[in-house]
Amino acid sequence: MSFVVNGNAVPGPADPRVSLLDHLRETLHLTGTKKGCNQGACGACTVLVDGERILSCLALAVQYDGREITTIEGLAETAALHPLQAAFIEHDGFQCGYCTPGQICSAIGMAAEARRGVPSHVSADLAADVILTRDEIQERMSGNLCRCGAHNGIIDAIQATMAPAPTAETSAELAA
């Protein structure tokens, strides 16, 4: 088996027990994806698979045959930073930096879900278009724990990058 990580075809693991997370970190030496709990409770290992955010610690690597995986190392198209990475620095959206790659990958997946119209637990109207209010972003990012307490900076960075200030039109929708 093989899959594509950040645009490069790479071999799968020899042992089916190996999680996508451990495969990335220990075999491919892509250590930007972090192991926080190894049990699906913290979000530090979040990566994108075909554009969707998942937890690589709960993913058996063998299951991802043929899929395209993007990790924190593959976000920026050039040597420069992805705009969200830059916003994390600008808004001080981290302290120790350990949950950060997961937060960033998660936010990118989150924005795609919102564009697609996936509602959230705090959406008042399940059928309406998604407007990424602060509450919506907070709920949608709640699968990514941060213990340093950088929550405000993280949401600020995401809001600044993914949900630009509401226009008159969206404000009216919000009010309605």
């Binding site: 969707e52 955010r53 637990h121 959406s123």
Partner: peptide, 22 residues
């Protein structure tokens, strides 16, 4: 979402987005 909203809401109340995607 429209015919069985409780099901959408129940799912969205569970776990995290990453887990729901898997």
């Amino acid at each position: 979402r429209t015919r069985y909203p409780m099901l959408s809401r129940a799912i969205l109340a569970g776990a995290s987005a990453q887990i729901r995607n898997m």
